[in-house]
């Protein structure tokens, strides 16, 4: 099983003003499966994605991703998990503006401890694979939204993660570019038998790109488990 969540809860805020973002979610995703998390804003999709990506820890419940029990991992192991096991793609690209495309793609490999020569070659290859071989040394403000998102995709996939987590990756793109970016993600997932969790509002995108659609409402899964 690539992902296994049991009764996962996430509560934000201090006592007395608490907000329960996830209310006992349980879900399983098989290796190589593509799952879409569908729901309105505030339904808990991104919160669940952040927990799966190891950016946050659940308030309670058990969470296992890529064969790792996340609640058992130390801070250092969690960082290692983020750089090697999962690849995250965000709606707003989240590129470091002061760094070039190749430097951004290189970053996860820096923290994974790969040699400079090795990671430069890998970063170039990843950028060429998403069609940005001519944009290696451009910074994000010198690129279009679609190009920036392709850099973000290259960065997320360069370490060949077993689980790809995409948080509305096409939300800021036109339909043509969105299709192209999704194709890149899906190609990788198919090629490496990776698991995909796609957060989206787009019913059609969810239906065409994933094997299963899981619907969330107010922090609870109502359909698709």
């Amino acid at each position: 099983m690539a992902i296994r969540a049991v009764e996962v809860r996430k509560v934000y805020g201090a006592k007395g003003a608490q907000v329960e973002a996830l209310r006992g979610i349980s879900i399983e995703v098989a290796e190589g499966e593509r799952v879409a998390l569908l729901g309105k804003s505030g339904s808990g999709k991104s919160t669940l994605l952040n927990l799966l990506g190891g950016l946050d820890r659940p308030s309670s419940g058990q969470l296992s991703v890529g064969g790792r029990d996340l609640d058992q991992l130390s801070m250092r192991e969690m960082a290692r998990f983020r750089s090697t096991t999962v690849g995250m793609i965000f709606q707003s690209f989240n590129l470091i503006a002061s760094r070039t495309a190749v430097e951004n793609v290189e970053l996860p490999m820096v923290f994974a401890g790969r040699s400079r020569r090795d990671r430069l070659a890998a970063a170039r290859q990843a950028l060429e694979a998403v069609g940005l071989g001519a944009r290696l040394n451009h910074r994000s403000h010198e690129m279009s939204g679609g190009e920036s998102q392709r850099v973000a995709v290259a960065r997320a996939l360069v370490n060949r993660p077993r689980v790809v987590l995409a948080d509305e990756p096409t939300g800021n793109l036109d339909s043509h570019t969105a299709r192209h970016v999704m194709d890149l993600i899906l190609d990788h997932v198919r090629e490496h038998a990776a698991t995909l969790v796609l957060v989206t509002h787009d019913e059609e995108l969810a239906a065409t790109c994933t094997d299963r659609v899981v619907r969330l409402v107010d922090g609870q899964i109502i359909d698709g488990v």
Binding site: M75, A79, R80, R82, M88, I96, S98, L107, F111
Partner: peptide, 16 residues
């Protein structure tokens, strides 16, 4: 802050 968040998301530890 955002850059630090990105670094953490791609594998930076607190020590780094």
């Amino acid at each position: 802050r955002r850059e630090i968040g990105i670094m953490k998301a791609v594998g930076a530890t607190n020590w780094h």
